[in-house]
Design a protein around this nucleic acid. Structure first.
Lengths: 203, 203
DNA sequence: GTCTATAGCTAGATAGAC
DNA sequence: GTCTATCTAGCTATAGAC
């Protein structure tokens, strides 16, 4: 993967900003060039064509997502000594604090393009539907093995429920961000959601 | 609102099919004309311009959504005599059976365009985030007043939790539909979700 | 209300000078 | 690696005959 320094980086960032605002098909190479402060034809010294820019944006996203989740070992301590619901609150809050604005904009592009673009849809499946549920399930199993939560529930379903709430709140958040309205409700909703799920799991 | 018979209807349906597949910006008036079996210029005898087609599609959706929810009175009986979780299972299943494919495709357009189009976003807010939660909350309050569920939980939060799951499952479903893969998991997931929420509410 | 024809513009992409 | 200039194709939309 080539670097994102210099002109290439300017083009990349301009494209990320424009695609996340108007969608891939709503942005012209002309506009990307203008926003990068260069001429249209210079784009083709750095990218093969318009689609190649999107591909590189997706590559960047993939690289940024791989192995960014804190490994289970890293939260072993928290699982042992924090209340289970606090562990998940921490996971969610840590996740929402460690945001990279470039990655966030790309995530928005992926949300927009998932209905048209196969690779965008693959990201949605992997990073919103599968990996989080698997991750939560592992954490929950560890909590059970350490006697931190009760053992009378299907943990796969609990993991799915945790993710439903997380997705729903993200969905609310994205709408609020688009509207430019207040987003402080997110913390409260996350907290309510985690409480709801763990009400019956903590013995 | 004008009718959707004849040529106007053909244009309308072609646009719905194309927009839901490629997005508004991914479809040309030329292609809509071709798919309608008429010439490009004839479109302008029925719609002001390309954007007017989208506006009419949104008008159709709005008309179709208004007051389509079964009124609370209609499920009074069910609330009285069915297990609470069965009432919600029924609501969800009835909802998924009474689908109009045209409305479903428009819903997909709205999902796609919500990041760019204000009116699409308004629909998302109204019909995915606000109305369902309010509706579930009313049902839950009725259940409490009839002594069908316990009264020790914040019903607003329960209504939100119900909606999170519903949204999450819809989200999974849309991905599966785009992939052309099996969608039979939906019934099971809906059932699991309703059970999870009502586990603690039914006394 | 449909067509042919075309205006006027914007799109993605390339050639070649510097 | 940047630029000017330009190509070709496609776009939305309109004019006017039938």
């Amino acid at each position: 993967m080539k670097t994102l320094e210099g002109t290439r980086g300017k083009i990349f960032d301009a494209a990320v900003n424009l695609f996340s605002r108007y969608g891939y098909n709503g942005v012209s190479v002309r506009k990307i060039a203008y926003m990068s402060g260069i001429k249209e034809s210079s784009i083709y010294n750095h990218f093969e064509n318009k689609e190649d820019i999107l591909k590189c944006i997706f590559d960047y996203f993939q690289k940024g997502m791989l192995a960014q989740r804190p490994h289970k070992d890293e939260i072993e301590y928290e699982i042992e000594f924090m209340a289970p619901r606090e562990v998940f609150r921490m996971i969610f809050i840590k996740y929402s604090k460690n945001r990279n604005p470039r990655i966030d904009k790309i995530a928005l592009i992926i949300m927009m393009e998932q209905y048209i673009n196969q690779r965008a849809r693959d990201f949605i499946k992997e990073f919103m539907l599968q990996e989080p549920v698997n991750y939560y399930e592992i954490i929950l199993r560890t909590m059970v093995s350490k006697g931190r939560i009760r053992d009378d529930t299907d943990l796969r379903i609990v993991a799915e429920e945790l993710n439903y709430g997380f997705l729903g709140i993200i969905f609310n958040l994205v709408v609020a961000l688009q509207e430019g309205s207040d987003t402080s409700f997110v913390i409260q909703k996350l907290s309510n959601h985690v409480d709801f799920v763990f009400e019956r799991l903590e013995s």
